[in-house]
Write a protein that binds this DNA or RNA. Structure first.
Lengths: 138, 138
DNA sequence: TACACAAATGCAACATTGTTGCATAATATT
DNA sequence: AATATTATGCAACAATGTTGCATTTGTGTA
């Protein structure tokens, strides 16, 4: 068992439970974003759907994962890396969703460009959602 | 009745029906994005939910409206302006969602910045979703 | 290690959102 | 005005998300 899993949970003052360990493991094992349905399928041992919803919600609140906007009614989540995992929830991100395989990536190292808005709009967070073909599908 | 409504429907080879007229009118009357639920509430005369879903779907296919990604499980739609309305579906957009009142704007005139992606990713479309405080709420 | 407290889970029931097939009604075409 | 085409409404269903509460599990402490 990856020690990062228990470390992360403890650092965030969360009880170490089976579902949390397993769900966090799924995120650590793959570099892509996961939707609720993915987790339900991949978790093997079946946790109650409610537990998965609540776990995701808790992880978002603690800044362990963040949600990725999408236009297809399926919110996905991805691990917050480095800086973000220390509690800076309001980070900007570039996300990429493959039109073909629907795999979604959080591109941490891509810098979010500055957006200039009309007078009167106060910017809090900027999410860039790029779609196209990913490495595997092109 | 706004002649733009019937014009737009005919230009897109769509039968002119009550629900399509009403829904298109809602989009034309307000400058903000609408979710399915908003339309259901605002349409007054109640159309079947299925009709609303199908109308939105048809409008998206014809390029009359476009969907806006969101992180809260509620896809919103906004009118495609000028260039876009002539059939160029794959336009890039900057959208703004107010954290306070949840009103969503399609900022047509704001230019979408260029995003540089890692080797191997082919860009098709770029959506920028900005959140913060809107004109009214700041 | 055992105990008590706090917290998370699972279940049930429900609410919301989205989809499909088909008969009926409305619109378009001649 | 008559016919062909298309959209609507209904019903039934599927998927997704939420809430309250009893039970179980984890945590901190003696």
């Amino acid at each position: 068992m990856d020690t990062r899993i228990i470390d992360t949970l403890k650092r965030n003052q969360l009880s170490v439970t089976d579902s949390r360990k397993k769900i966090l493991e799924l995120f650590l094992d793959q570099q892509t974003a996961l939707a609720h349905a993915d987790i339900e399928l991949q978790s093997g041992e079946d946790f109650d759907r409610v537990t998965i919803y609540r776990t995701l919600q808790t992880f978002v609140e603690k800044g362990i994962i963040h949600s990725i906007p999408s236009a297809d009614n399926s919110v996905r989540y991805a691990l917050c890396k480095d800086a973000c995992s220390e509690g800076h929830h309001h980070d900007n991100h570039v996300h990429f969703m493959c039109d073909t395989c629907l795999t979604t990536y959080c591109l941490d190292h891509v810098t979010v460009p500055t957006v200039v808005l009309p007078e009167g709009f106060q910017v809090n967070q900027v999410d860039v959602v790029v779609s196209g073909k990913c490495l595997k599908c092109s």
